[in-house]
Amino acid sequence: MSQQDPSTINGGIVVAMTGKDCVAIACDLRLGSQSLGVANNFEKIHQYGKTFIGFTGLATDTLTLSAELKYQHNLYKLKENRGIQPEIFANLISHKLYEKRFGPYFSTPVVAGISDESGEPYVAGFDCIGCIDAAKDFIVSGTASDQLFGMCEALYEPNLEADDLFETISQALLNAADRDAISGWGAAVYMITKDKVTKTYLKSRQD
């Protein structure tokens, strides 16, 4: 079998958006081996205290990376005796990715959370060697990132209330996934506000 791009073997997407006093992050649930669907319960978003991180790319690397970050997060809590802020976590991820500059993890993470200090919503994305993209509107990642860019750029508006942001991110994710053969098979959306997090599974096409 010929060598292919590791970041598009398993498929999958993540998207995050900021709203008024809220952030949302969402992922699809597919895990595949090229065109073969393997699992429809592969959640790409992990929780670290109050910060949420979605990983797309090569599944094995996302697992390694998420475990490494869990370890780093625990160390941070022990040393500092407090939870980690999303901005700090983003810088930590950047360092971890750049450590492997010449043999990278084939994963492009997305961070979403609300800063305890400022109370501001925060989202950030990375390339696989740790360049931070701290956008103030939305972050997309994964094999349907082009489609997500198109959807988000057209649907997004700033300062949406949680309900409207939920609809926006859901429609962006679902319609983008439907135009990508290796994304979809279900979806999960996290809506994060200062004092509440809700997780919703979306009904989606199963082809």
Partner: peptide, 19 residues
């Protein structure tokens, strides 16, 4: 060039996909 960006948007807004 922009087909992959716009096409899902049209699915959603013209053919009401996922609505």
């Amino acid at each position: 060039a922009g087909a992959s960006l716009i096409m899902p948007f049209l699915d959603n807004q013209v053919n009401f996909k996922n609505q």
